[in-house]
Nucleic acid binder design. Structure first.
Length: 995
RNA sequence: GGGCGCGUAGCUCAGUGGGAGAGCACUACGUUGACAUCGUAGGGGUCGCUGGUUCAAUCCCAGCCGCGCCCA
């Protein structure tokens, strides 16, 4: 068969991948040796609706390199694939699709129908990313593909989540509470603080006067740093600064720092919020708290506990009520009683009336005229009203003081809308408790980060961890396994009518249960066997008590919590849920803890830390021993690639264009640790060329009858070239292993590149040609066998990085029992195979050839011309060496003859090499001036280097203090330089005679 | 404000306490039977700046300048 001139990646890649899959090459344990150690990697599950981006391509290439090599080494390998249900992202995709198609929205559809619709979406698009990973060559065990969400609660992946929730709930590590959370008004759900992006935007700082109650006044005094009074005036107000005037409506207090003398006189007094109908203006107290910064703004801060995280802290400390102003869409509330009535309630509370959180939450302090407005529209109205009333602080020019300044504003990372801190009932994980073992595991080295630096990020976050809000007001996800019923106190219930869970004002009894049956059991145990327990599955979530006339079938209706769990809650279980937990499976026993987790740094908080917490808590062991943090693929300006920026390079497009091997090689070569990766497409092209180079080396072998010899012993060759390539191959194997073991993928890629192109396809093939095409039968056979072996070894070593082209060539090179994907990874060492004499011969030959070629080019010798070479003053060793490598020299330097002489011929170009002076007699051809210039230049370079070395060696401090081997090395270098310079100087002298 | 990182050839990037590297681009030459997705030869860098440690600094330390990211 004759090979094509290039590798047809588009044709071969799908064919090869299909064959690997068909033959089960990627199955867990495939190619494992008897008694093999396990080696497992859990893929970071991509979003099920997602598509492959460069980050995925990089990460999965690196994982595949790790996995393929281990598999070839005979480990019991598992690469566990799967996808993430991606709660918000997926729900967003479907809602958008519904809107575009003009179909009813999710609320019109109802929960059940909507979730069914999302499943259809998942089923239709879920394979996209899988197929893209296959295009990349990822050798995952697809038969084990996992998904973070089950169709039903009985599905194993869902059982895992529910079991974890229940256990943590029973242990008191999960709890429900009304807290300030990040609220996404677009998706109308809580999100975790990690899903919030703080972005600096153009903002305004308004300054308003809060008049003191009853027209009171005080002396306001400002002093400079030395205590000199700079301002003294009588004021009847306290000035506050705010970037969010609409939240003034919910203020509960004004706070000043306890050390702030300017306001000491009015602490404890009341001031008036300067907005809303005049007759109903609310009064709020002036309190002290450590939070306000006296140096910032006026030093006084308005406290809106329900809409600001800092204020929330102040309110909690100071017993200040938190009034919620907005609804789930972040529009100003329109519920409740008329403003006047609501203000009266708030006043009663301020004056000492006790009120529950729920009662306070029910109060709507939005004036009637602002109700239902969007928060930003309301802001404009509030500003206009206050300014119109003359209560804005004025600047030196008499105009209202409005500072334009950049402010940090929180945005939802998915929705891109401004996040509203909102007081809501949510579920939380006591992350601080779970974090302790997770911190310890990294501190004591049970899990190590690569590069190690990232452990700092991990520590920093876990040491300051906040409670993790895990509930989401979404429908796509694991539903919280908690059921609510009315609380019972003896014979009395907290209420007597059916009521919706949404607006519940009474105490609830919670039943956390893994199944509905278990929930009913718990409820029966709680309420008594005389009650029928019914679970309400409808959307309106009514719970309560039904008492028929005859009181014969008294029924209590309980309802399941409508919220779902944060997707990361299920992702945190990935290292063991994918292995079958909570069932006890052989895989769980075998592969947990896994070997490596490879991921981006941006996900250390989201995922790595949480897997550590959950793994340690539920499996009593770390989920992985190594965490490799790969670089982030950025655009040419160093920005993250993102759809909204339009700076995305699609890996599939690159694969179409250059082949998967080229893309993988590029990513591996650029994946140096600890640095971001800016992708340059020209590199991909270069590695495609590399693949072609390899292809053509194989073609060369084929054309020259280089067939693999069964049982070939790499120690058997006699020819220097063959002995040399065998040693080089062993060195490559060592370099590759060392690099991959250390996660230095770029070193591995570069070593392979340099070997294949720079050594195998260059010097070796060129040097093999004279032997392959010569008359020496045994040498020819030896070279054929060695060439085939060297290529074969290169294919094996390159396979983890470039699986397709290597597999194709491996099959073409010889009939095989096994595919390359299951070939034995070599264990040769350089100590086994390298031969010092052969290495020295080849090093000398290469230097001589390069020197000759260089001189020829500079002398403008016709590239095709054959010229003689005369070796002058060769010592015995060099003469012997020249005899061994002479044919190579002749061929590669295009020499007509090689002769020895005692003296240099006249009019020759002189080359200084170790152990001899090589002369190219070019009488008639030689340009004396040009050769003079060439020697001059070479000598100049040598002299410069010599001068430096001599100065160094003349320095007694160097000779005394530097390591002896360094001194020795420098001396040897100087001697070599001197020898070379001597030869060149002699040549110069000869040239001078000629002139 | 805290933390991490970067600044090396025109571009994209490796690298190391002791002789500055790769790919691409560039220049000249070359169709020698594996490969023009190639070959040969070559040009190109005060390794951001300033100090310090050291016999020796592109590398270690400090400061500065410029840039990026994360967290508050």
């Amino acid at each position: 068969m004759t090979m094509e001139k290039t590798f047809d990646a588009a044709e071969a890649e799908p064919r090869l991948y299909a064959r690997w899959e068909r033959e089960g090459c990627f199955r867990a344990g495939a190619n494992a040796r008897p008694g093999a150690e396990p080696y497992a990697i859990m893929i970071p599950p991509p979003n099920v609706t997602g598509s492959l981006h460069m980050g995925h391509a990089l990460n999965n290439t690196l994982q595949d390199i790790l996995i393929r090599r281990k598999r070839m080494q005979g480990f019991d390998v598992l690469w566990q694939p799967g996808q993430d249900h991606a709660g918000i992202a997926t729900q967003m995709v479907v809602e958008r699709a519904l809107a575009q198609a003009g179909e009813p929205g999710r609320r019109e559809m109802g929960r059940e129908a909507f979730v069914e619709r999302v499943w259809r979406q998942k089923d239709s698009s879920g394979d996209t990313i899988i197929n893209q990973l296959k295009r990349l060559g990822a050798s995952c065990d697809w038969s084990r593909n996992a998904f973070t969400l089950g169709r039903t609660d009985e599905d194993q992946m869902s059982r895992a989540v529910i079991r974890v929730f229940k256990q943590l709930y029973d242990e008191g590590l999960i709890y429900r509470g009304k807290r300030l959370v990040n609220w996404d008004p677009h998706f109308e759900t809580a999100i975790s603080d990690l899903e919030v992006e703080n972005v600096e935007v153009e903002g305004h700082m308004w300054h308003f006067k809060y008049p003191l109650a009853g027209g009171e006044t005080y002396d306001y005094v400002e002093k400079d740093a030395d205590g000199n009074v700079t301002l003294r005036e009588t004021r009847d107000y306290i000035a506050i600064a705010t970037t969010r005037p609409e939240t003034m409506l919910g203020d509960g207090a004004v706070a000043v720092h306890p050390s702030d003398e300017r306001y000491a006189a009015i602490v404890g007094k009341l001031c008036e919020i300067p907005v809303g109908p005049k007759e109903h203006r609310r009064l709020i107290p002036i309190i002290t708290d450590e939070y306000p910064d006296p140096a910032f703004g006026s030093g006084a801060v308005k406290i809106t506990g329900a809409h600001d995280f800092n204020d929330y802290g102040v309110a909690k400390r100071g017993g200040i009520p938190c009034f919620r102003l907005m609804d789930t869409k972040a529009a100003m509330r329109a519920d409740g009683a008329p403003y006047a009535e609501e203000v009266a309630k708030a006043k009663a509370i301020r004056e000492g009336g006790a009120a529950s959180e729920a009662e306070i939450d029910a109060i709507n302090l939005v004036p009637d005229e602002y109700r239902g407005l969007d928060r930003f529209d309301c802001r404009k109205r509030v500003v206009a009203a206050i300014t119109g009333e003359g209560l804005a602080v004025t600047g030196p020019d008499g105009a209202p003081l409005v500072e334009n300044k950049p402010i940090m504003q929180p945005f939802g990372d998915r929705s891109k809308v401004v996040i509203e801190p909102m007081l809501t009932d949510q579920w939380f994980v006591d992350a601080a408790t779970l974090a302790k073992p997770a911190l310890a595991a990294v501190r004591d080295g049970r899990t190590t980060f690569h590069p190690e630096n990232w452990s700092k990020t991990y520590f920093q976050w876990l040491e300051n961890i906040e409670p993790w809000c895990i509930s989401r007001q979404l429908w796509w996800g694991h539903r919280v396994p908690v059921y609510y019923g009315p609380e019972r106190d003896g014979e009395n219930f907290g209420f007597s009518l059916n009521s919706s869970l949404d607006a519940v004002q009474f105490k609830l009894k919670l039943f956390c249960a893994e199944t509905e049956a278990e929930a009913i059991e718990q409820a029966k145990a709680y309420y008594g066997s005389e009650w029928q327990i019914k679970i309400n599955r409808s959307d309106d979530k009514r719970i309560g008590i039904s008492l028929p006339e005859d009181r014969s079938r008294n029924t209590i209706t309980i309802a399941r919590d409508p919220d779902v769990l944060d997707t990361w809650f299920s992702s945190a279980l990935w290292p063991f849920s994918t292995l079958g937990w909570p069932d006890e499976t052989p895989e769980l026993n075998r592969y947990y803890p896994t070997s490596v987790l490879s991921t981006g740094f941006d996900i250390i908080f989201f995922w790595v830390a949480r897997m550590m917490m959950m793994g340690l808590h539920f499996q009593k062991d770390v989920p992985f021993s190594d965490v490799y943090i790969h670089a982030l693929v950025r655009d040419e300006q160093g920005r993250k690639m993102s759809k909204s920026l339009g700076n995305v390079i699609d890996p599939i497009t690159l694969i179409d264009q250059y082949g998967a091997d080229a893309v993988r090689m590029t990513l591996a070569a650029m994946a140096s640790m600890g640095r971001d990766l800016k992708l340059d497409v020209s590199r991909v092209e270069g590695y495609r060329n590399f693949s072609t180079k390899l292809w053509n080396a194989a073609r060369f072998c084929e054309m020259n009858g280089c067939a693999l010899v069964p049982g070939f012993d790499p120690k058997s060759p006699r020819e220097p070239v063959n002995r040399w390539i065998v040693g080089e191959t062993a060195r490559l194997r060592e370099a590759m292993d060392a690099a991959i073991d250390a996660y230095r993928f770029n070193d591995a890629a570069n070593a392979a590149y340099a070997h294949v192109w720079g050594v195998l396809c260059d010097w070796y093939v060129e040097c093999a040609k004279p032997l392959l095409q010569g008359d020496d039968g045994p040498a020819k056979e030896e070279t054929r066998a060695t060439a085939a072996w060297a290529l074969d070894q290169a294919l094996i070593l390159l396979h983890p990085i470039m699986p397709f082209v290597t597999e194709e060539l491996y099959g073409a090179l010889a009939p095989r029992e096994r595919l390359l994907v299951h070939a034995d990874w070599p264990t040769w060492t350089a100590a086994d195979l390298a031969d010092a004499e052969a290495d020295a011969d080849m090093g000398w030959a290469i230097a001589a050839i390069e020197a000759t070629r260089s001189a020829r080019a500079e002398m403008n010798v016709n590239p095709g011309a054959q010229i003689p070479l005369v070796a002058v003053g060769a010592d015995a060793a060099t003469a012997a060496r020249l005899a061994r490598v002479g044919p190579l020299l002749a061929r590669l330097a295009r020499l007509s003859s090689i002769e020895h002489a005692d003296a240099a011929p006249k009019g020759a170009v002189t080359l200084a090499v170790q152990g001899a002076t090589l002369c190219l007699p070019l009488a008639g051809v030689i340009d004396i001036a040009a050769e003079g210039a060439r020697l001059e230049k070479a000598l100049g370079k040598l002299d410069k280097e010599r001068a430096g070395l001599e100065a160094k060696l003349a320095n007694p401090a160097f000779v005394e203090k530097a390591k002896p081997e360094v001194v020795e090395k420098e001396r040897a270098r100087l001697a070599a330089l001197a020898e070379e310079a001597g030869k060149l100087a002699a040549a110069q002298a000869r040239l001078a005679e000629l002139a």
